[in-house]
Simulated assay, not measured.
Amino acid sequence: MVLEEKLVDAYVSEEDQNNLLKFLEKKETKYMGLQRHKMGVEDFELLTIIGNGQVYAMKKLHKSEMMRRGHVEHVKAERNLLAEVDSNCSVKLYFSFQDDECLYLIMEYLPGEDVMTLLMRNYILTVEARFYVAETVLAIKSIYKHNYIHRDIKLDNLFLDRYGHLRLSDFELWIAVFSRNRIFQ
Rank of each mutant, 00 (worst) to 15 (best):
124 I>E: 11
147 N>W: 05
132 Y>P: 00
151 R>T: 13
158 L>W: 01
12 V>L: 07
56 Y>R: 06
144 Y>R: 12
125 L>T: 02
32 M>S: 08
38 K>V: 15
44 F>I: 04
82 L>G: 03
102 C>D: 12
165 H>P: 05
84 E>F: 02
37 H>Y: 11
149 I>R: 02
3 L>T: 10
171 F>P: 01
29 T>H: 15
48 T>W: 05
67 M>S: 13
69 R>V: 03
144 Y>W: 14
172 E>W: 04
179 S>A: 11
63 K>C: 05
1 M>H: 08
119 L>W: 08
128 E>A: 09
71 H>A: 04
116 M>L: 15
119 L>S: 06
146 H>M: 04
161 D>S: 03
40 G>R: 11
83 A>T: 02
82 L>N: 03
80 N>K: 04
115 V>I: 14
178 F>R: 11
152 D>T: 04
173 L>I: 00
182 R>I: 08
156 D>A: 13
93 L>K: 00
143 I>L: 07
73 E>A: 09
51 G>W: 01
154 K>N: 09
2 V>G: 12
68 R>Q: 15
25 E>P: 00
68 R>N: 14
1 M>Q: 12
27 K>G: 12
159 F>K: 08
178 F>Q: 13
32 M>T: 10
9 D>G: 12
88 N>Y: 06
82 L>P: 06
48 T>C: 09
184 F>T: 13
60 K>M: 14
32 M>C: 09
177 V>H: 06
35 Q>N: 13
183 I>S: 10
7 L>V: 03
74 H>F: 05
21 L>A: 06
162 R>V: 11
138 L>D: 11
25 E>F: 09
142 S>W: 02
10 A>V: 09
114 D>K: 07
79 R>A: 02
138 L>I: 07
182 R>M: 10
95 F>K: 04
104 Y>M: 07
180 R>K: 14
12 V>G: 04
142 S>D: 09
72 V>D: 06
52 N>A: 15
61 L>I: 10
144 Y>H: 14
152 D>A: 07
60 K>N: 13
76 K>Y: 11
156 D>H: 04
43 D>P: 04
80 N>G: 13
4 E>Q: 12
127 V>M: 10
145 K>E: 15
37 H>R: 15
90 S>T: 05
103 L>G: 00
113 E>W: 00
89 C>I: 00
11 Y>S: 15
137 V>K: 00
115 V>H: 02
40 G>H: 10
89 C>H: 12
